[in-house]
Design a protein around this nucleic acid. Structure first.
Lengths: 343, 343
DNA sequence: GTCCTGCAAGAAAGCGCTTTCTCGAAGTCT
DNA sequence: AGACTTCGAGAAAGCGCTTTCTTGCAGGAC
């Protein structure tokens, strides 16, 4: 019978230097190494120096897994959105990521690929891998959102609120689109088409509310809704429907859709803005560089991401997250909209 | 003196159900619970069933940190790129993320914000948090890249190769831009401007090589280089320089730059393609939807991401990563380029 | 010289899993 | 019927950290 020798390294060999090796090599205990590495060491400078030197020499870096387990936190947060390919979400992600990085946090991404049913599962799964979550879920039913909010704390909602169940950073789509509509109205347009977003999405609902509200106050204005979507392709495909409404102005769910619209209109030799005015929503980075530069409602997406991090950080630290914020879109008038031509 | 009572939960309270609680509640050992949860249980069905039921009832979900520590792997990979706001990188990320998710892996993102010096540090740090890495580092010096490759294994390189130090998925920018140049040449253009990318980036270098190669074979062709960058803004700002070259055609470093160019040209009432032809590179999703639809070289970014995951997975499993791949861009002729007008 | 205080650094427990090892019970073979 | 396998399931070690608890020792007070 073999002597009962303690099994080292669990059979596997993982290569990386461990705190124990550094401790042995430096002639101190692991506790001391840990303290030195975390600037909690209070003893002799010589020891600290020796530990540091040894750590560098052995190319030691603490294991995140072990650290996470011992500390009960991962130094990571997640960002879940329905479509990471949309520049608007990317901008939020970018703001979040950059700011979180400054505090030593990394971000995990989750793309629910527009699948409403998978979203809660994805969110729960990914949340368990990190310390907190930023969720963009424009189409999730309210009750589900509230359930999630309580289960996934700390979490902050973007573009959506959940009756106080979680801090929320929202955009006033309603007022935003109302301003855009007003802009077209003041240019003389009386018949306007709205190429909508995903049905059942809150972001689309708010826009319709805004449209309705303004229309109610202006009896001579007609707004016709046309099915659209979230991507350029959807705008492109909606062109014929838009044309057949005979509207002189179009409001798109977002810039991507507006750009698709522009492409399709151009393909049919319909000039913008001479023959028809087009406006988008979001002000994605190159909305102003396309031809014609797109009139749109500017939303500070990066800032949304930044603020999301601040709230997450407070929550992680057990503090108050700060007030919810409602961002007001700013209308950016460019040349894709113009005065209605006399018939 | 207080009785020496074992300290539970390390003083903190973390709330989540642990495997030990499930074990106690189900009247089995933690080992059994672990086996059941991982489908490695071979005993009586009744026991397995009881464990599963208990797990559900207690809302048990294993701790990723603990699992990672025990297993020595995190089920996560990282994606590091110089600018996550660029749709091309987003597409790669999207392909990577979607495919990795199917295998139960999540992705961590690292945006080096175009900072060449921070890139290796970021890559090393983020790599330690996960099992493997996808790196896009167009501007990193070769020697540094080779160093990284050996330190960060498993890792795959995108848009860049490192002398076999790591699997690489590249794009034949050289041939791609050569084809674009040929296209303009065949349209009768003899003086072409190239709005370049970041200096010292390999992706820009390859493009210049392609340009030079084609120019060398066609004595009547002149290509003038104009400083540019990676974003629409850079293209927009390069417009005056482009105009002053008196070129009749422009090749941009990428679609973003081309779009900026288009915007600037339009602002000066210079018609595209009538007065000047413009081509981009990448074929980002809405290149075809802008006006005029952009002639460009299409690069299958999503596919790059997908292939990156396949290689990463092989590497993680200790298998051969498969051959390096060189993707050939496909010229997409749209209407932003046209025959040169007789002077 | 003794006793106490203070402090530096180590021992060891604990984080929540996985997996090897071990052991007792049930089943098989002659 | 007794010896030998199988096999199911638990005990315990180990993953690599952090942190509490403990101890040994130097210095100060009396």
């Amino acid at each position: 019978m073999a002597a009962k020798v303690p099994r080292k390294n669990n059979g596997r060999s993982r290569g990386a230097t461990t705190i124990a090796q550094v401790a042995t090599e430096a002639g101190v205990s692991p506790a001391t190494v840990s303290r030195v590495m975390n600037d909690r060491f209070v003893g002799e400078d010589k020891i600290a120096e020796r530990v540091r030197e040894t750590a560098v020499r052995l190319n030691y870096a603490p294991s995140y897994s072990a650290r996470s387990l011992a500390l009960g936190q991962t130094q990571a947060v997640a960002f879940v959105a329905p479509d990471l390919r949309n520049p608007a979400f990317q901008a939020i992600l970018s703001g979040l990521s950059t700011t979180a990085n400054e505090d030593g946090y990394r971000v995990l991404i989750g793309d629910s690929a527009e699948s409403v049913s998978e979203e809660p599962l994805l969110a729960r799964e990914i949340r368990r891998r990190c310390d907190a979550l930023v969720l963009c879920a424009p189409r999730m039913p309210d009750h589900e959102l509230v359930d999630l909010a309580s289960a996934l704390h700390p979490m902050v909602l973007v573009n959506r609120s959940a009756a106080g169940a979680a801090p929320a950073l929202t955009v006033d789509y309603r007022t935003g689109i109302e301003s855009l509509l007003k802009h077209l109205y003041e240019l003389g347009h009386r018949h306007i088409a709205y190429v909508g977003g995903p049905s059942h999405s809150m972001s689309d609902k708010y826009r319709r509310d805004g449209l309705r509200s303004f229309t109610a106050q202006n009896a001579d204005l007609v707004v016709t809704e046309v099915p659209g979507g979230v991507a350029s392709e959807d705008g492109f495909n909606a062109v014929d429907a838009v044309i057949s409404t005979r509207a002189t102005g179009v409001l798109a769910f977002n810039d991507l859709v507006a750009i698709g619209l522009l492409g399709g209109l151009q393909e049919r030799n319909i000039r913008v803005p001479e023959e028809i005015s087009v406006a988008g929503f979001d002000d994605i980075p190159f909305a102003r560089y396309i031809a014609p530069p797109l009139t749109t409602a500017s939303v500070p997406h990066e800032e949304l991401g930044v603020q999301a991090w601040y709230r997450l950080r407070s929550l992680i630290e057990g503090k108050e997250p700060g007030h919810d914020m409602v961002f007001q879109p700013r209308v950016e008038i460019r040349t894709s909209t113009a005065a209605r031509r006399p018939d």
